[in-house]
Design a protein around this nucleic acid. Structure first.
Lengths: 227, 227
DNA sequence: CGACTCCTTGACAGCGTTCAACAGTAGTGG
DNA sequence: CCACTACTGTTGAACGCTGTCAAGGAGTCG
């Protein structure tokens, strides 16, 4: 359950694209790890930007299988839906602080003539689309090692290629993101560790990438030249 | 290569959503089976609606693997990109007739204040997003039989549940759409045929579904109740 | 007719899942 | 401080689904 911490109705400096969405009213919310931010089919009334922590969007199936659509890291904006309802559930992975914007006013402006607001929502949806399309390629035609490589490189890039990559999510989450089992994720990481491409620091969620180029060699790139 | 057949600059009755995009100039184009409609990374200057035939959007990898992102059937609109370049290649599967709209003017209007045009593009992108998200669930955590079921039900629905489903695409295309091999696709169809859930008419691309509900039982649905 | 493409079917191997055991870590309470 | 529990992650072993390789049938076209 969300813990309303405080209102933030003054125009504080809002990083990245959020400021472009106009003078909305912002609040800060905190979620404990595992808490639901919003559920599938719930009305999409808010936009979220992560201040600290991490969020996963996923879909649960009745037989226990689960597919994670995306991980959201600090700075990421999520919750943008065109239709008005969420199609995935969003859950905090660890204790997480987000800034929340009421989207109600935003959407009202779409119906009117606020071209800037419409374009901003469209860009957010398009960015989501691009990520899902890349994710599609990941799930469709890659073996387990390639999937883990792609995951590592994606997180590494989005964290700004830090010396030590601290994963907020566990092996189960990685597995459900990549469409494989947590055992195979673990085994794949062990393979790269044995090959000295990466190593663990203290815990098995802190990873040091020793050779990003060698890692990147193991995934196949799209072919610009059609055959 | 596209074969320009004729111009169609008069305001003919345009079916479905295309008319909402405003009074653009439409042309009719024909493509032979296998012909490229547009390529990856090419500028997205046109919108397409299929009159007859079928188109696949796909991405080719350098090692021969291929992922098909979507099949487009008569009535479908495709080619809507937010960024201005295509992220997938589009190819005619069979001899195909499309209506083409110059998107140039459309995009120019986005920069101005045409809220209707912006919303229409946004809806097209959102529909694409919804399809890709469903596709993601298909590729991530389903076995071969479930994948083929989902494919059959999707095509059946989009063709309007005809008595005889005529597939424009071959087994290889289905396989690359579902992230499996054509042999496994063939085997899965044979399983359903042996179970009398479907049968073939004349050719192996004409399929009769005898029991859609029994088919639907074999795929797992998203769980509305989180456990 | 021959060459070709597309599809089916069989045999087999391999990759990844499943099941299981165990280790490492954190939290809790005596 | 330690014992106990719960959780997470690693590793092993065996199974099974699906990919791979191969052969052959069915349809098409010159």
């Amino acid at each position: 359950m969300p813990v309303r911490v405080g209102a933030n109705k003054t125009a504080k400096p809002v990083p990245s694209q959020l400021s472009e969405l106009g003078r909305a009213f912002w609040s800060e919310c905190k979620y404990r790890g595992g808490a639901k931010v919003f559920g599938e089919a719930e009305p999409a009334d808010y936009l979220y930007q992560i201040r600290e922590g991490a969020v996963r969007t996923c879909k649960q199936f009745s037989d226990g299988r689960r597919q994670i659509g995306a991980f959201h890291l600090p700075g990421d904006i999520f919750g943008a839906e065109d239709g008005g309802v969420h199609r995935f559930t969003a859950e905090a992975i660890v204790n997480t602080t987000v800034w929340v914007a009421k989207r109600q006013s935003l959407f009202a402006r779409l119906a009117k003539s606020d071209i800037a607001a419409a374009n901003n929502v469209r860009h957010l949806v398009t960015r989501t689309l691009e990520h899902v399309e890349n994710h599609l390629l990941l799930l469709g035609r890659r073996n387990s090692l390639e999937k883990v490589v792609a995951f590592l490189l994606e997180v590494d890039r989005r964290l700004g290629q830090p010396d030590v990559m601290v994963l907020p999510m566990g092996r189960r989450d990685i597995a459900d993101y990549l469409g494989m089992t947590l055992e195979t994720v673990s085994r794949s990481l062990s393979v790269f560790r044995d090959e000295r491409i990466l190593s663990f620091r203290e815990t098995n969620r802190k990873i040091v990438l020793h050779d990003r180029s060698k890692l990147a060699e193991r995934v196949c790139q799209p072919d610009p030249e059609r055959r």
